[in-house]
Amino acid sequence: MKKIMMGCLSAVAALIALASCSQDYTNYSGPSHIMFSDTLYQYAVQETNEVFNVPVSATEKADFDRTFAVEVVPKQSNAVEGRHYRILNNTVTIKAGEMVGNVQVQGIYENIGKTDSLGFTLKLVVPEKYNWTDLYKDYTHVVMQKSCPFDIHNFSGWCVVTSTFYSQYLNNVTNRLIKTEVVEGEENTVLLKDVYYKGYDLKLKFNTKNPLEPKVEMDDQIAGETGEAFGTI
C-alpha cells in the first residue's frame, strides 16, 4: 500500500511539473509581420573593417524564402553612404523555416574620426500586410563609433590615480602619482605600483571583448592592517 501511495504521489508530482513547464511558453498566433529587431543599434568600426549585421525579424516562420528591400533615409542620417559605410546588400532575405535575416554593413575605418558620432537610418520596404506600425516601426537607426586597436602598452608609464580610500584615510590627499608596467606572461594586464602605500601593488586586467563597453577586471584585494600601511594603531 505504501509503494502504491508513493507511486501515485510521484505521478501527481510529474503531472504538476509538466503543467508548470507548459505555462512557461507562449506561442504567437497573430498575423505575420516583418520588422527590424530593434529601433537602435550601436557598432564599433574597427581597423579590420569587419562586417556587422542589422537583424530583421519575422513573427512567424514560412516554408519559402522572403526577400525585402532596404533603403537609407538621408534626412535622418549624418553618415554618408560610400564614405563612412557601405551597405553590402540592399535586400534582406529571411530563409524558409527561419525567422531572422540580416542587412550587412561595413564601416570605413579610415574615414571616421576618433570623436565622430555618425549614424544612418534604414527603412524596410515591405508589403502593407507585413507592417506592424501600430506597435513596431519599419525603420531602425544605426550609430557607428570608431574603435582604435587595443595596445596594452598605452597603459604603462606614469599615471594619476584617484580613490575614495585616499579622501577617507589619507589627510588632504585626493590622488597619487604612480607608475604602471605591463605584466609579462599575462594577457592585457598591468601592474599598478604603490597604489595605496609603498609596496602595495595592484593588478588590472583589461577585458576587450566588446570594444564599445571596455571593462577592467580585478581580483579581490586586502589593503592590509592599518599599522602595516601607516605605522599607526
Rank of each mutant, 00 (worst) to 15 (best):
A96P: 05
L170P: 01
T59K: 00
T226S: 13
K146W: 07
V92I: 09
I34V: 14
L202Y: 13
A58H: 01
N175K: 09
T232H: 10
D63N: 14
T180E: 00
F230S: 12
K193Y: 03
F155D: 03
A79Y: 03
T115H: 09
T180Q: 04
F52I: 09
K2C: 06
K137S: 11
K205P: 06
V143T: 13
N175E: 12
Q46H: 02
V182N: 08
N102R: 06
L9T: 08
D219Q: 13
E50T: 15
E184P: 06
E186K: 14
I4P: 08
S77Q: 03
E50D: 15
D63T: 07
V56Q: 03
E60W: 04
T93M: 11
L9Q: 07
G30C: 03
L18R: 04
V72R: 10
N102P: 05
A11H: 01
S77M: 00
S57T: 14
E187N: 13
P55D: 07
P31S: 12
F150P: 03
T208N: 07
D219Y: 03
Q104D: 10
E110T: 14
Q23D: 04
M5E: 13
K215V: 13
K129P: 02
L88A: 04
S22H: 09
F206D: 01
Q145H: 14
A17Q: 04
W132L: 07
I152W: 05
P149R: 05
K95V: 01
G157M: 11
N171L: 15
V72G: 09
C159P: 01
G30F: 02
A17D: 02
N154G: 12
M35F: 10
K2H: 10
Q145N: 12
T121G: 02
I152K: 06
D116A: 07
V173F: 11
K61L: 05
K193C: 05
N49D: 12
Q76P: 00
Y43F: 15
S57M: 09
L191I: 04
G7R: 09
Y28I: 00
T115F: 10
N131A: 13
G185D: 08
P214K: 13
A229S: 14
S29L: 08
G224M: 13
D24I: 12
W132M: 05
L18W: 09
A44E: 09
E128H: 06
V216N: 11
E71H: 05
T226I: 15
M5H: 12
V12H: 02
T93K: 12
Y25D: 02
V142Q: 02
V73K: 06
L177H: 11
Q104A: 14
D38A: 13
S20G: 04
M99S: 10
Y28E: 03
S32C: 11
P55M: 10
V56R: 01
H33F: 15
N188L: 00
A11V: 13
V80P: 02
V54Q: 06
K179S: 11
T232Q: 11
Y109S: 00
L118M: 11
A223P: 00
I108T: 07
S167G: 12
L212Q: 09
F150T: 06
M5D: 12
Y25A: 02
D24S: 11
A79G: 06
Y136L: 09
N102V: 01
D24A: 10
C148V: 15
E110K: 15
P211C: 08
A223K: 10
L118A: 05
G157R: 14
